[in-house]
Amino acid sequence: MSTLNLTLKIWRQRSAKEKGSLETHKMDNVSTDMSFLEMLDILNDKLEREGKEPVIFDHDCREGICGMCSLFINGKPHGPERATTTCQLHMRSFKDGETITIEPWRSSAFPVVRDLMVDRSAFDRIIQAGGYTSAKTGSAPEANIIPVPKENADLAMDAATCIGCGACVASCKNASASLFTSAKVSHLALLPQGQVERTERAINMVNQMDEEGFGHCTNEGECEAACPKEITVENIARMNREFIKASAVSRG
């Protein structure tokens, strides 16, 4: 087991209203087998024992599926590895003596709650605006009664792997939420179960995305590269298609 000596520059901010700044911490003998969040746990342990405020950061499942962890590590969302959430990132991805800068997602729609924790409820409101389907209640229907083309099922499943972490917004130079919103619009537009609300969904979700203050998509594709679930920008084109069509035909 090898170890690393690291310098951490961590964003500290007491609340959304107060100004934040980078704070430097030395970390010695960090195991390369540790996950990134375990490394922060050890830092917090040390800070608490010294009677200082621990660094606040979001995390939950720590197995890359819940979408709670975030962190902008050395200029990249979820750090240097592709298709990896921060919780699945390990210290072996870093070099001995390295300086690691850790910042929160930066977007006016994601206000900082404290330190590295941001409020991502804007995403919840986008989902509430249209990320649902109407289902018939009653007895369970026969599972195979609705045929779905294999290709559509695959594309819908690819879109549905979005965990809503917000790395797309964090990486976008315009802080646009197009990749997230388009993954949700695509997921349901591709399936027969999503057809009832198809038109209104596209309009309502795009409207809510704009209400939250996210920026415009300028088709650079950084979001696609940042996404830990490898959602593609093909979904954004689909969302635009859905939205243009819906705007033309909607009576609402």
């Binding site: 910042e103 930066r106 977007s107 006016s108 646009s176 203050g213």
Partner: peptide, 12 residues
């Protein structure tokens, strides 16, 4: 609008 969507820029 894009500037307004990220008022505080990243250090890195």
């Amino acid at each position: 609008a894009s500037k307004a969507a990220r008022p505080e820029s990243y250090a890195v």
